[in-house]
Design a protein around this nucleic acid. Structure first.
Length: 567
DNA sequence: TTCCCAACGTA
DNA sequence: CGTACGTTGGGAAT
């Protein structure tokens, strides 16, 4: 029967890449909308209908993967292409939220609707006539609250609205100027939208699949750093007090709370150390001469592990299957980087040996080299910097150009991108202006936009909303950095989703995305293929992303049983 | 209860 | 000595 449905849709023009809006009603069925029509399908398990249609490889169109694709991913479906209205809304309109109400409003030039807080009140419904659209053009609160799934006819209407918005978004992206000089290719903003959509789906997969962790290895590490596992709350307090005592006995006077920076500062005064704050880097120089300070710093390190990555964290986030799971956001913050919770993005390096491949599999790591300066060269179109970016190590030619040593060249380039205003890079920055005027002007223009409070777009089309007249100093630096960090995030995600796609052939998965690093888990016999794939997909992605530019992007690949070994 | 800060982990 | 993020604990404001 579902075979028949696939044939029917194919006959009606649904083929690979055709936008196909999906409104899925659990246990009831689903509704589909495409450019040529709409269709409802009754089914006790609608996910299986999607599975049967997946061979068509349409561009599944939904409000947001985080809600709509969740049941599909949970059922093991790994769909190829999608259009995520929320992800594209974030890109196109600079939205900080991706709920249907906000994305619909932005797509139609309507004011941002109030955030829905779960329940509806009668006031919200005033003026609604029972249809999906209010008289002011906004989506109905009642429909947003679930009215669309009351019956399959309504779901069909809902899918139709999704398809309408998809086409509006596609037109808007198509109208954006393409920063590249390439004829007869889809707009970069459209390609970025496809990548951002797939990244949103990848985020759901990362969330459900998790990161493989070896509990025994982690337990042993925790034992060494913070001691035995507490058996009850009082025991935990006692162990904590014992750790504190190791530091406190080295300081004269009253017992103080080591977790209170003010009290720690006073405690340090008692041994004659007067510091403006108690940050580690400030105390570090005194560790050699003072055993007490050294003990305090060692305590801090252990305390960080104990509180943030200790037994409680393990119990909370690592399931019985040994996977560490946290919530993922595919495009967070102003620059649209991926973010993750549960410590996935700030796991201390010393715990990385605990991230281990499962039996028969290995971890393959791919790390983009010097990605931000290469991105600067590509997006600014600076010919000199692009020439340098043809090399494996682009700081060497930059140093030659500036007439300084490599470390200075590196600091100068980073200082330019991050808006450093003082320090040793001052002189080198002047040389940067002389040597790479186009790149420096690109950064200065971004900073100016931030200071003037006007809108700006990243290379891939992400809107960085201006803050208006009351622009702060901070916004200049923020914009200067966001055009680089944001573009790098776009390139990274475009690469990541291509890797995701190719990995299907060797039964491999992406298990972690870390800003410029991908961690894969693949069958051991395919380790080499996976490594080669990381390089070939990067070349393919950079081929369209930086089309017409000599800039080369490079990836460093490592393989091992653990994340640490993969370095 | 909510919010901000200090501190520190990652890129 | 610059940006972005998440997490924890403490303390002030509510």
């Amino acid at each position: 029967m579902t075979r028949g449905l696939a044939d029917e849709l194919a006959a009606q023009g649904v083929q690979r890449g055709t936008p196909l809006a999906l409104a899925l009603v659990p246990r009831r069925g689903l509704a589909l909308a495409w450019a040529g029509g709409v269709r409802q399908v009754e089914a006790a398990d609608p996910v299986e209908v999607v599975r049967a249609l997946s061979d068509l490889e349409p561009r599944w169109t939904w409000w947001a993967a985080g809600t709509d694709a969740r049941p599909l991913v949970a059922a093991g479906l790994r769909l190829r292409a999608c259009w995520d209205l929320g992800a594209v809304g974030r890109l196109l309109h600079g939205l900080r939220r991706d709920d249907a109400a906000a994305v619909w409003a932005a797509g139609h030039g309507l004011p941002e609707p109030a955030q829905t807080r779960g329940g509806l009140d009668l006031l919200d419904l005033a003026g609604e006539d029972g249809g999906p659209l209010r008289t002011d053009g906004q989506l109905s609160r009642e429909w947003l609250g679930g009215r669309w799934s009351d019956d399959l006819v309504s779901a069909q209407v809902w899918a139709g609205l999704m398809l309408d918005l998809q086409s509006r978004q596609a037109d808007a992206l198509d109208a954006l100027p393409d920063p590249r000089s390439v004829p007869r290719q889809p707009r970069l903003a459209v390609l970025t939208a496809l990548a951002e959509s797939a990244a949103a789906l990848l985020a759901v997969e990362l969330e459900q699949d998790g990161l493989p962790l070896d509990r025994d290895v982690l337990d042993a590490m925790l034992g060494a750093v913070v001691g035995e596992r507490p058996t009850h709350p009082a025991h935990e307090l006692a162990l904590r007090a014992a750790r504190d005592d190791e530091v406190l006995r080295l300081f004269p006077g009253e017992r103080v709370d080591l977790r209170n920076p003010l009290l720690v500062r006073e405690m340090l005064l008692r041994i004659g150390l007067d510091v403006p704050d108690t940050r580690s880097w400030r105390l570090e120089p005194h560790a050699a001469s003072s055993p007490a300070v050294a003990a305090l710093l060692a305590w801090r390190k252990a305390e960080r592990i104990a509180t943030t990555y200790g037994y409680a964290w393990l119990d909370r986030n690592v399931a019985d299957d040994g996977r560490l799971r946290g919530a993922w956001n595919a495009a967070d913050g102003g620059a649209g980087r991926m973010t993750a919770q549960a410590g996935l993005h700030n796991l201390p390096t010393e715990l990385r040996p605990a991230v281990r491949a499962e039996p028969g599999r290995v971890l393959v790591r791919g790390d983009l080299g010097q990605v931000e300066p290469r991105v600067l060269a590509a997006v600014s179109g600076d010919a000199g910097l692009a020439r340098a970016a043809r090399e494996d190590d682009m700081y060497a030619p930059v140093a030659a150009q500036l007439g300084c040593d490599r470390p200075t060249a590196k600091v100068a380039v980073l200082a330019a991108m991050y808006g450093q205003t003082s320090g040793v890079a001052g002189e080198a920055l002047k040389d940067m202006d002389r040597s790479f005027p186009t790149a420096m002007a690109y950064l200065r223009d971004a900073e100016d936009a931030g200071l003037r409070g006007v809108d700006l777009r990243t290379y891939g089309g992400r809107l960085l909303p201006g803050v208006g007249e009351e622009a702060t100093h901070g916004h200049g630096r923020y914009f200067r950095n966001a055009v680089i960090q944001g573009a790098a995030a776009e390139l990274f995600k475009a690469w990541a989703v291509t890797v995701r796609s190719e990995l299907a052939a060797i039964d491999g998965q992406i298990v972690l995305c870390l800003h410029d690093e991908l961690l894969l888990q693949v069958p051991a016999e395919h380790a080499d293929r996976a490594g080669a794939l990381l390089a070939s997909t990067l070349e393919a992605t950079a081929g369209w992303w930086a089309a017409g530019s000599p800039v080369r992007f490079v990836v460093e690949v490592g393989t091992g049983e653990s994340w640490a070994q993969a370095h």
